[in-house]
Design a protein around this nucleic acid. Structure first.
Lengths: 226, 226
DNA sequence: TATTTAATATGACAAATATCATATTTTTAA
DNA sequence: TTAAAAATATGATATTTGTCATATTAAATA
């Protein structure tokens, strides 16, 4: 089993505050998992008794709305932790996590993590800061959904995907989302999303190649996104 | 100056974890303030070097969107704390706070609060739980904005105002919001909000009396809200 | 109290977006 | 490989929502 002391990814999460001793203990109680693209890590309403540390890959956090459609609340990638909110609130998770590509994750049981909260103040502060960051992001997102048009939100989301997850050698966005998934990030009907992508394509803002999307005119997209 | 040891409101916030000694010290460093309806407690982008504890009254937390319109992210009332996220993240506040009615608030300087994080673990956990609760709420809110119609969101918001802040003796909602404010909670144009309120009125779901709103048929409103 | 200003209300219309239908392409699995 | 299923694409149309204009009412203030 891989050693947490040697895991680089740890440096990117709240876990960077852990001491050498804590890390050795962690290595013993964590479990490593391979998650296939499309697999569910956990589902809304489930009791997840611990947190997941993402070593590699990207997943979507979704929430089922009253009308039965999924909404993608957030995309999460390596170096981030899943399930913190639920663990702290001592509640079932309020979101589902589904892999968008093959992933490597480690599961750390609640008992272990709660110990850090008691004994490692820096760890607590790191977690708090992360959650505060999520909350700020959620506020921003909320205002965008409430005030911006679908077109603006699409442009913004494309730029976000580019900035956050980067692009492949062929310049296409690294995260490959279906039109349906993209629509459920920006909060619109799949057809509307497809139509706007077509429009952007015709205007030369982007280039479509099947699922691959290349951002051609970032300046214009930024102007569109406001 | 009023004593924190005797303040009932404290029991409703993270501050309930404070020891007697901590409370006595707190009384000395806190400042009390009377805020008039419409007054700004702090403004988006400001550096608020501490947190506000709401002793009485209600305020709105708003965020300016790109198009220049305010969006109401949250309503906050007595027993709650303001400015925690900003203090923990060590950033300017991302929201403005404006009183919806006359308020009494106490300001606790950052230096004091940060001390609690170090020494009082229960306080830290309380704050974390509160912020986690806010995050969950924000997720829900986000999905509603993305997926529900304006009509559904209006019905839901009216029910929320009723459940959370209660009603006056004449059965009207206790929080009095202008149509403009109501619109900026549900994320729509003021005229659309007014029109839908009119519709609800004609359908007998609510009763309008100037600014006063009485919910007449809660069951039907719930059905509308989904 | 009179005057001004702001908030509420409503009509007419335009724009944005959703829905339904259907064709085409891509992917999956038999 | 081929048949079936799913994803993408696009047109036609309906619905929702926003915008502008203007009237009416309520609130603020000189």
């Amino acid at each position: 089993m891989s050693k947490c002391e040697q895991c680089i990814v740890r440096e990117f999460s709240s876990l960077k505050a852990l001491t050498k001793d804590e890390l050795i203990k962690l290595s013993d109680c964590k479990t490593s998992h391979i998650i296939k693209k499309g697999d569910v890590i956990f589902e809304e309403g489930e009791n997840v008794n611990g947190i997941y540390c993402i070593k590699d890959g990207i997943c979507k956090l979704t929430k089922l709305s009253a009308n039965g459609k999924d909404h993608i609340v957030k995309l999460v990638t390596k170096g981030e932790l899943l399930g913190q909110r639920s663990m702290i609130s001592d509640e079932p998770v309020n979101l589902s996590a589904v892999a968008l590509e093959d992933m490597q994750v480690c599961f750390i049981p609640k008992s272990e993590v709660m110990g850090y909260f008691d004994k490692n103040n820096q760890f607590s502060m790191n977690v708090m800061k992360t959650i505060c960051g999520d909350l700020k992001e959620a506020d921003d997102h909320m205002v965008n959904l409430a005030q911006k048009t679908v077109k603006e939100r699409l442009a913004e989301t494309l730029l976000y995907l580019n900035d956050t997850f980067g692009k492949n050698e062929d310049n296409s966005l690294k995260v490959q989302l279906s039109r349906d998934e993209l629509a459920s990030i920006i909060g619109t009907a799949t057809e509307s999303c497809i139509r706007l992508l077509s429009d952007f394509n015709k205007l030369g803002l982007i280039e479509l190649n099947g699922k691959k999307i290349v951002l051609k005119d970032i300046t214009a997209l930024k102007k569109l996104a406001d």
